[in-house]
Amino acid sequence: MKIKYLIIALMFLSVNIFAQNFLGVLSYNTALPMGTTGDYISDFSWKGFSFEGRSFTNRNWSFGGTFGWNIFDQKITDLIEIDEGDKGTTVKGTQLRYVNSFPIMATGHYYMGKRKDSFRPFFGLGIGTYYIIQRFDIGVFRREVSNWHFGLAPEAGILLALSRTTSLMFSVKYNYAFSAGVAVDGSTDNSQSYLGFNIGLAFAGY
């Protein structure tokens, strides 16, 4: 029975692909760290990419999935001051801070205008998970934590047609990963967020 459903599902998927109802998007992602992520690493991230598949249900709506990778890092030499009751602690050392975020999400998008328009604004929402690895290096010491976070990613963007099958995509996506586990600094608020600025190529499938 399961195989039967799988074949039916695959048939639908193939139909979608060959009916030019499918859009594959490959993007280069930059990101501005925000919230607790921004407190940990303030540097803008120039390293990130994502793959996305969007299947159109009609002229204005698509549903699909995305996988991405964003890398944040920073070298900091500032003093760390820790206040614990009667004790005052100061730490000096070269700190290397890293956050690797891997969003894996189901997405839905709404497109304005018609399919053949050369300029199509769209709005979308991603729901799924972020696998986030935080690393803190100081001297010969290392602390690393990794957690699966539930997350949401609202997005707004435009598609600019280059040809019948290829479009340029620009989008801004707010990535919010809800708190999960403990942050690398021991804090129980381990929500992570960043504003992604993405440029990509979208290929319509035949």
């Binding site: 890092d73 009667d86 070269t94 290397l96 690895i133 690393r135």
Partner: peptide, 24 residues
């Protein structure tokens, strides 16, 4: 993306850590 962890080309001095603590 050759690596998910940038190697900042650290020297031996970058691995030095100084911790001080005092009683307030």
């Amino acid at each position: 993306f050759t690596s998910c962890y940038t190697d900042y080309g650290l020297t031996a001095a970058d691995y030095d850590v100084v911790v001080t603590q005092y009683d307030k």
